[in-house]
Nucleic acid binder design. Structure first.
Length: 268
DNA sequence: ATGGTTGCTTGGCAA
């Protein structure tokens, strides 16, 4: 049994629904995880997913900002949305789906961006980012059974490695690549012994980005990107992984998102 | 060094 998972910060699901449907038709994912849907649940375009065979669709969205969703053609055993930092801001959703042997739990995260100033004492947004990561870390640590098939995807808004940014030196004090965030992200990752599935297939010596700012023209030529989006697999799940990719070509679509989709392929 | 763009929504925030 093959399972393909696609994760994308779509930056408005309603604005880019046509792009998304063409992406689904091209890549045929079994699970689609979106971040920044910017769409209340009652206005989510469920029918567009049903039309392309993704019959189980879940949204944790709010008006205007943030929001995550998961759509799948797999049988769903359960859904959960955890309200980190008690803000009700639509930053997490998880589904447990059936695979051949064991259930697979997929966590979809949209970690707070954190504002501009990387100091929690003076920047409430940065404090929120760190608190969110700490709370998520505790939550995964508290999970008793570490032998599960567990996937974590999403826009984590942190580029941890020096080759996850266009200039390590120039971004050290820029939110998304500061040592304090990277340390928190690593603690989060180790909370369930997650493996960085993208880097499993693309060596750390390669520059690798999933986001390019809207604020620079000729994004491809200047190539000042960051790897803010991630796919992490638990050790048990990692045994089933076949490949991963970052679909950079999608940054050249009309009216693109500033992020591009990630894909992971599994065999069970 | 600063400003640069986009989306949701129509003024200003979030990214």
């Amino acid at each position: 049994m093959k399972v393909r998972i696609l994760s994308w910060n779509i930056n408005s699901v309603r604005l880019r629904i046509d792009s998304l449907i063409s992406i689904i038709k091209k890549y045929r994912p079994d699970v689609v995880c979106l971040q920044e849907t910017k769409c209340p649940n009652d206005q989510f375009p469920y029918q567009d997913f049903y039309n392309v065979g993704l019959k189980n669709v879940f949204s944790n969205g709010i008006k205007g900002y943030h929001g995550v969703s998961i759509a799948t053609n797999l049988e769903v055993e359960g859904a959960e949305q955890k309200d980190f930092c008690k803000k009700k801001d639509g930053r997490h959703l998880s589904l447990t789906v059936s695979t051949k042997d064991k259930p697979l739990t997929i966590h979809n995260f949209y970690v707070p961006a954190g504002g501009d100033e990387p100091d929690p004492a003076i920047n409430e947004k940065f404090k929120h980012k760190l608190d969110f990561l700490d709370e998520a870390t505790k939550w995964f640590k508290s999970k008793q059974n570490k032998q599960k098939l567990m996937l974590l995807v999403g826009d984590l808004n942190i580029a941890p490695h020096e080759n996850d940014v266009w200039s390590h030196k120039q971004l050290l004090k820029i939110v998304s690549h500061t040592p304090i965030e990277i340390e928190r992200l690593k603690k989060f990752q180790s909370s369930y012994e997650f493996i960085d599935s993208i880097r499993e297939f693309h060596p750390y010596t390669d520059k690798l980005y999933s986001w390019w700012s809207y604020r620079s023209k000729n994004w491809e030529q200047s190539n000042r990107g960051r790897r803010l989006d991630h796919i992490w697999a638990s050790p048990e799940l990692n045994k089933h992984i076949k490949s991963t990719s970052i679909e950079k070509n999608i940054r050249n679509y009309d009216r693109p998102s500033d992020h591009v989709p990630l894909i992971a392929d599994f065999k069970f």
